[in-house]
């Protein structure tokens, strides 16, 4: 087998196809660049990463709670403190995520083929709401009793309650600690990859100096996406 044939065979292998696919997700050098376009200069840009940092704290505090078990925090002052960390990291996660959302809205950050980035961000928000909701259901206290018996009506009315029983504590524990956090991580992961793939949206009316006067080919209309 010649060297060229061998090379071609390697290129056809499943492994090299995966490597090509992964390396093509994000332009070369853009996974973790140490430079950003000059227009990235506002405090509004720090809220996405603040939400990510909060998510790390949500997961970390949640994992500590799993060590003690679901009712540990009722009887241990340390457990209650960890529960407080979990609650406040969730409050900050949502607050920073929503400010990030407001910021991205006023910048119309979906321009230039970034519609999917917005979409995955929106779904990260939705799945996060579901995850937080199930957390309220497994507190094993008055809140859980009240919230589950109230929420059942909304879910039952759509038929969802036939499979997703918010009063079934065992089912809700597993949703809260496994299925839904996995959903959040998948959506946030896709979102971050898309952000790195497309880069930070340029200002309205901007043209890169090198191409000034020449219509760029990779973008789309100012108002929407293609």
């Amino acid at each position: 087998m010649s060297a060229a044939e061998e090379q071609a065979g390697e290129n056809r292998s499943w492994s090299s196809a995966v490597v090509r696919w992964v390396s093509g997700l994000v332009p070369r050098g853009q996974w973790l660049p140490d430079r950003q376009p000059g227009y990235v200069a506002s405090w509004i840009y720090v809220f996405g990463v603040s939400a990510l940092a909060s998510l790390v704290l949500v997961i970390a505090s949640g994992l500590v709670l799993t060590v003690g078990g679901v009712t540990w925090w009722h009887t241990s002052s340390l457990g209650h403190f960890v529960n407080s960390l979990h609650l406040w990291s969730v409050e900050f996660f949502f607050a920073t995520m929503v400010i990030h959302l407001w910021g991205k809205f006023v910048m119309a950050s979906w321009r230039g083929g970034r519609g999917l980035t917005w979409l995955t961000g929106a779904f990260s928000f939705f799945v996060s709401i579901g995850t937080a909701f199930t957390g309220y259901l497994i507190q094993t206290n008055f809140d859980s009793q009240w919230i589950s018996t109230q929420a059942k009506d909304g879910l039952n009315s759509t038929g969802v309650g036939s499979q997703f029983n918010v009063m079934d504590f065992g089912q809700m524990v597993l949703y809260h600690v496994a299925l839904l956090p996995l959903g959040v991580l998948v959506m946030v992961g896709l979102h971050v990859v898309l952000v790195r793939r497309r880069g930070v949206v340029p200002p309205f009316g901007a043209e890169p100096p090198a191409e000034a006067g020449v219509e760029a080919v990779s973008g789309s209309s100012e108002g929407g996406v293609k």
Binding site: A41, S42, W43, I44, E91, A95, V98, I99, G103
Partner: peptide, 20 residues
């Protein structure tokens, strides 16, 4: 308090100069 704080932080993020 949470909602007002979020709005205040949002406005501050828009108007406070970013170190460059």
């Amino acid at each position: 308090i949470v909602i007002v704080a979020m709005l205040v932080v949002f406005v501050l993020a828009l108007v406070v100069p970013f170190p460059q």
